[in-house]
Write a protein that binds this DNA or RNA. Structure first.
Lengths: 165, 165
DNA sequence: CGCTTCTTTCAGAAATTTGTGAAGTTAAGG
DNA sequence: CCTTAACTTCACAAATTTCTGAAAGAAGCG
């Protein structure tokens, strides 16, 4: 690392990572702006950026930042901070908060389970279709329990390897 | 259950389940037509329908069926069958095949891991951002291993409760 | 209270996605 | 081979989504 680079960040390298990781998130179904904003926060030095910084770095309007951040906050993937006595907001990824959120398909899972249970009732538990749907439901019930155990194991694993970082 | 209903399926009840479950899949990011086709197959008596039957039941064009089925086959959520000596194709959900597919975010996971690894390299493993991204990567590496173990447990659980159905 | 700074909301232009009809392709069966 | 039944591809119209500039809304600070 040259002296000129020390303590400095290569804006080009950051941007390339931001765009390529965001592209993967988009491919997996996330909207474009939330994906870019999230990737930008993830690759920021402090893990937190202001609206203006995000707009500048990603070349998007304040409106776009606002929409993206609202979405991410709803999904519990970032949190909003406000330095006391300032109008300026800061958006932050907590190292641990966001992958809790990613496995927190809980809301999705719950709705699927509800819809499937309803299907079993409608079609009749003793019909072929009813049985097929009941098995699908059993799968999601199973998954539901497993995921929370998995996250417990991850927390232990993480603490061991990364400390309470 | 009245005599008239015995052995018969209430088309209205089926349709209501199809549309409501499909809506949940759409909300979770799946495209509309694949979601409807999939829900229709899931709630069919035999677990398999022809293109014409799907078009009729869902009121969609052959082109729409074709597109939806191509997508579902790529995702390994349905398989195509052809009765020998017929031009007519049949699309089937195998009870076990498709939830294997649903947890098979493997392709997605792999791409995320690749993008994150690249990010650590670009930003530097010893920078704050690099460390944050490395931890995220560690999470996905962990998840990757856990999911296959979870599916092993599911198969055991399933066999116990449903037999080899 | 009013000025200033930041964020949010909103209407609309632009881009993208979706589903169709119609033409094209494949393969069975005479 | 030719016909015909079935599936696929393609261009386009319609619907939806996305992002912006502009206006409106909040909140610190004098």
């Amino acid at each position: 690392m040259t002296e000129a680079m020390a303590g400095r960040r290569d804006a080009g390298a950051v941007s390339e990572f931001v765009e390529s990781f965001a592209a993967q998130l988009v491919e997996a179904g996330m909207q474009r702006m939330p994906a870019r904003v999230f990737a930008a926060l993830l690759s920021s030095d402090t893990g937190a950026l202001t609206s203006a910084e995000l707009g500048e770095q990603l070349q998007i309007s304040p409106a776009a930042v606002s929409g993206a951040v609202r979405y991410l906050a709803q999904q519990h993937m970032v949190s909003r901070e406000r330095e006391p006595g300032s109008r300026r907001e800061r958006y932050r990824v907590h190292s641990d908060q966001w992958y809790e959120a990613i496995t927190n398909r809980e809301a999705v899972l719950k709705r699927w389970q509800y819809a499937l249970r309803d299907g079993v009732d409608r079609l009749g538990a003793e019909t072929p279709a009813g049985r097929r749907i009941a098995e699908t439901l059993a799968f999601f019930d199973f998954i539901d329990g497993e995921i929370s155990q998995m996250m417990d194991r991850w927390r232990a694993h993480r603490e061991k390897h990364f400390g309470n970082g």
